[in-house]
Amino acid sequence: MFEAVAFYLFAFLTITMFYITVTTAQALYALSALAAGMIFISAFFFILGADFLGAVQIIVYTGAVMALYAFGMMFFDTTREVKENHGNKYIVVGLSVVAAVMVVAIFSAPIISTNMQAFYPMVEGAGNTEQVGMVLFTKYLVPFEVAAIMLLVAMVAGIVLAGKKMDLSLTLMNAEEIQAAEDEKNKKVLS
């Protein structure tokens, strides 16, 4: 009973928040709604007994990803209303529904139709975090290390791409210096 109430409540909240995210014209509303939706998603993980995954969801998505988005939005003009692609709305919605149903059917049909055996069954008498650690650091050690290298590469790429000309500050320079920097920038774009 409690599970059903929690499921329907959080399903409603998540769908509402994500719907606001994809339909609103204000970038700030979209960001806030997305952050709320991420937190509500973690509730499903807690209901499903995947406590560690829920904690990681809150920390990574609402902690790191949302902070990075908020930081990135400082670079863009977010107060302006976002212009939308007003094509045929029914075609867009219809194609989306068909594609989503197809994807879920393709991936869940083999799981439901065959009598699936647990590949790495849950260990009795161990907490979720302990089980995750046991499987992650034995069976999935190589993918774990590869993911670590991928995150390192992404971090270096982010610093290299976004960190260019960070030492220049437009508010601390006088007019001639700003003009010189602008000229150099235009030269680079044109070449």
């Binding site: 560690f52 999935y140 791409l161 976004a162």
Partner: peptide
């Protein structure tokens, strides 16, 4: 089965790195 949770972890890692490069 714990495999699903493992894949969810890797999906989160991929989402984080995609965001870092994409935002840059």
């Amino acid at each position: 089965d714990l495999t699903g949770q493992m894949f969810a972890f890797f999906v989160i890692a991929i989402a984080a790195s995609e965001l870092a490069v994409g935002l840059g």
